[in-house]
Simulated assay, not measured.
Amino acid sequence: MNRFHVHLNVADLAASIRFYSELFATPPAVLKPDYAKWMLEDPQVNFAISTTGGAQGIDHLGFQVDSAEALATIGRRLDAAGGTGVPEEATICCYAQSDKLWTEDPQGTRWETFHTFGEATTYHAGDAPCATDGAVCSPDVSSMKPRPEQATSCCAPQSGCC
């Protein structure tokens, strides 16, 4: 069986092991003093490249899910792992319409979980309310905060929405 492989250098191994064990809902298959590895059967991988982002290299990692229920499940795992999920509802990114949750792991790697429900004619939403920076679809998670229950927009920068 072929598997997609991602290797991240982390600053705090113990914090990262806790985060990923909760996110993946399983402990590492291999655990050493300076190394941990998970051998996951699910999810399969969606790998994408673009020329619309900033610095070359990994922009973010994530999961594509098949339903709103699966998105909520990953959201609960993010909460358990200690990440703050930042929702983006009905957003346009990568020529698709999706609901998303963004978070960062302990060393600042951005994670996107999304459920796609339609196609779009543009790469990103551009000037949509609380859209990303207009050049890339992935927001700066650290500048956003979770949506209050009564809010109607997708997300809000720390300094205030839009």
Rank of each mutant, 00 (worst) to 15 (best):
H60G: 02
C93I: 12
G62R: 07
G85P: 14
P87Q: 05
E69H: 08
P87A: 13
F63Q: 01
T91Y: 12
K100N: 15
Y20I: 09
T84C: 06
S98G: 08
W102F: 15
Q64A: 14
A15I: 03
W102T: 04
T103K: 02
R110Y: 04
A70W: 06
D105F: 02
I17Y: 02
V45Y: 05
S50T: 15
A48Q: 10
K100A: 15
D12E: 13
A96M: 11
H5M: 07
Q107G: 11
W102E: 03
H7R: 12
Q64W: 07
G75L: 04
R18H: 15
G108F: 00
A55R: 09
P28T: 08
G54Y: 02
D34H: 07
A15C: 00
R18I: 03
V86W: 06
A68K: 13
L71H: 03
A68I: 07
T52I: 00
A14G: 09
A70E: 12
V10E: 04
K32H: 13
F19Y: 09
G62T: 06
E22G: 06
I58N: 03
G85K: 12
R110H: 06
T73V: 15
G82C: 02
L101A: 04
A15D: 12
A15Y: 07
S21H: 09
A55W: 00
D66N: 10
H5I: 10
V86F: 02
A15G: 03
N9F: 10
A96Q: 14
V6S: 08
A96C: 08
G85V: 04
V65L: 02
E41M: 04
G53F: 11
G82W: 06
G57A: 04
I49R: 14
V10G: 05
T52L: 07
R18E: 12
A36V: 01
V65R: 02
L78S: 08
E104C: 11
A11T: 14
A81S: 07
L40N: 08
Q44M: 00
A29G: 07
F63L: 10
A48H: 09
G53Q: 07
G85N: 12
W111H: 12
W38L: 01
Y95S: 11
H60K: 08
H60P: 02
H60I: 08
K32V: 06
L13C: 08
A72C: 03
T91Q: 09
D105P: 01
A29T: 14
V6F: 07
P106A: 04
F19Q: 05
A96G: 15
V45W: 06
V45R: 08
A25Y: 02
F19M: 01
E69M: 06
A81E: 05
A80W: 02
L8Q: 01
S50A: 14
T51Y: 10
I74A: 07
T103V: 11
E69W: 00
T103C: 15
Q64F: 01
G108M: 00
T26Q: 14
S67L: 06
I49A: 12
V65G: 00
T73H: 11
A90R: 09
I58T: 13
K37T: 06
Q64M: 12
L13I: 06
E22Y: 11
D79I: 04
Q44N: 10
F47K: 09
V30C: 03
I17P: 01
L8W: 05
G82P: 04
S67D: 07
I17E: 15
A96W: 00
L8C: 00
G57Q: 06
Y95I: 00
V86Y: 09
H7G: 10
W38M: 03
R77A: 12
V6H: 05
Y35K: 07
K37E: 14
